[in-house]
């Protein structure tokens, strides 16, 4: 599975405003709902917050992978947001979060869901990839970084 295949590139946010975890998720949900007719912003936000309540998806090193399952969706959808200032995402290492990769999947997607999560978190294990995202000036730069990483594994 390639991440580019599921990334909604028009929902990518290069500069999230400073704010809370909740505000960041509201902004990302709204952006994704705008380009993805199967997704309703309020419902997505609810799903993501529910998952965060179980355990924060801030995996450290400035990365969070908020995710959840949604009824009525027929495929995996992802989006990305960058916060140059950093957001308090209640990360495992207590550090501010700069990269938010959102994943939303159909209700019954079992293995594929986990595969995508594993793949995304593996991308972010690569410090060079994280730096490329920090340095990206345009949406194309972001897309290029992800494409490159996609072709590696």
């Amino acid at each position: 599975m390639k991440i580019m295949d599921i990334l909604a590139r028009d929902a990518v946010i290069l500069n999230l405003g400073v704010g809370t975890k909740r505000e960041a998720l509201i902004e990302m949900s709204a952006a994704l709902a705008k380009v993805e007719p199967q997704i309703e912003a309020d419902r997505l936000l609810e799903v993501l917050l529910e998952r965060e309540a179980l355990q924060s998806t801030g995996i450290g090193e400035g990365v969070a992978i908020p995710h959840g399952k949604m009824a009525g969706l027929d495929r995996l959808v992802a989006s990305f947001a960058r916060s140059p200032e950093g957001i308090d995402f209640e990360s495992i290492d207590g550090q501010p979060t700069h990269h938010l990769f959102l994943l939303v999947v159909p209700e019954h997607s079992g293995g594929q869901y986990l595969k995508a999560l594993a793949r995304i978190s593996r991308f972010f294990r690569d410090a060079a990839f994280r730096q490329q995202l920090v340095d990206a000036e345009t949406l194309d730069d972001v897309v290029r970084a992800i494409e490159e990483e996609d072709s590696k594994i």
């Binding site: 998952r51 801030g58 593996r122």
Partner: peptide, 18 residues
């Protein structure tokens, strides 16, 4: 394997529902 390269804490955080 999709597990290769993963950190144990990543699995714990991301697969919390599984």
């Amino acid at each position: 394997s999709d597990f290769f390269g993963l950190r144990v804490s990543d699995m714990n955080l991301l697969f919390a529902a599984t």
